[in-house]
Simulated assay, not measured.
Amino acid sequence: MSLSYSLPDLDLRAVQWRRRIVLAIVILFVALLLPFVCAVWLHTNPLLYAQIEHAGILLIFIAIFGRTWSALHIGGHKKATLIETGPYSLVRNPLYVFTLIGVAGIGAQTSSLVVAGLCTSITAAVLLFVVLKEEDYLRAKFGAAFDDYTRRVPRFMPSFTAYRDVEELTIRPKIVYRTFLESSLFLISIPAIDAIELARHYGWLPDVLHLP
């Protein structure tokens, strides 16, 4: 069976592909920078240092749960159906919101609020560009129904007063499993940062940048 795509669909696919490339570059840059960053709290306030790190772990697990929850509702039909239930009744882009939460959690593993904020801000800028393109596509496809949805549900900041759910879900396990596994990659940051801290403890890595 041959597949055909409209020009807006092709444009959206190109935007999403560029989003993956940019995020990969950002992740690589952060990965190269992290070995030389040390949070000032390590020496001035060890308790705060540990609390930020633990809060980051909590954010990572929230991101894994939230992205999987979103995948249960979207079922791989975001372009075919306007999803307005579950997390999509709270915020229009729950997958991206939970991604930002996970990125903040990764940055917090350094116990530096500056690193966490920088990682989150860069990722948010990339995702906002993608979201605006996706909204153009969805508005062209669903018209007034999508405009009504945007008036009721915020783009990024959740509104819990409009929560709606369904009694039954049509689940595509492949989508759910893939989203869960992709989200679980956030957990790699925990042993990775621990390894960096251990190397710094033994003097194998220098403290070049001290950030709050």
Rank of each mutant, 00 (worst) to 15 (best):
S89L: 06
D136M: 05
L100S: 02
V103L: 08
L127M: 14
V131H: 08
S184E: 06
V166P: 00
S189D: 06
K141S: 14
F160D: 07
G75F: 11
I188S: 05
A116K: 08
E167V: 07
A125W: 12
A125K: 10
K174E: 14
Y137I: 02
R152T: 07
F156C: 04
R164W: 09
R178V: 06
P87G: 14
H77G: 01
E182A: 10
T161P: 00
A104M: 13
Y137V: 03
E84K: 15
I193V: 14
T123H: 06
A162Y: 09
G105W: 12
S159A: 14
A80H: 12
K78N: 12
G76V: 06
L181S: 03
E135F: 03
V131M: 08
A125G: 00
I83M: 09
V153K: 03
K174Y: 05
E182H: 05
I188R: 04
V114W: 14
G117R: 11
D194S: 03
V103F: 07
C119N: 11
F146Q: 01
I83H: 08
L127P: 07
L169S: 06
K141Y: 10
F142H: 01
Y137M: 02
T179F: 01
P87D: 15
A140Y: 08
E168M: 09
F180T: 13
R139F: 03
T150M: 15
A124G: 05
P87W: 10
T81N: 12
E168G: 05
I106H: 01
L128K: 12
A195W: 10
S121H: 06
V176D: 09
V115R: 05
T81H: 13
F98E: 05
R151H: 13
Y137H: 15
G107I: 10
L132F: 10
I122S: 09
I106F: 00
S111H: 08
F156P: 01
F160L: 14
F160C: 08
G117C: 08
I171A: 09
F156N: 00
Y177E: 09
R92E: 12
T120G: 02
G76F: 11
M157I: 15
T123R: 02
C119D: 03
I175L: 07
E135R: 04
S184K: 00
L181M: 08
V97D: 01
A124K: 07
I190Q: 02
L118I: 13
P87A: 11
D148N: 13
V91T: 03
T123Y: 10
I101P: 01
Y137K: 04
P154N: 09
A145R: 15
T85Q: 03
P158C: 04
G102E: 01
F156Y: 14
E84T: 15
S189Y: 00
S89M: 05
L100R: 12
A108F: 10
Y88M: 08
H77N: 13
Y96A: 12
L100F: 03
R152G: 07
Y163G: 02
K78D: 06
G143T: 10
F129L: 12
M157N: 03
A162H: 14
A144P: 01
T81P: 06
T123K: 05
T179M: 12
A116H: 00
A162S: 12
V131N: 02
P87N: 08
T81V: 15
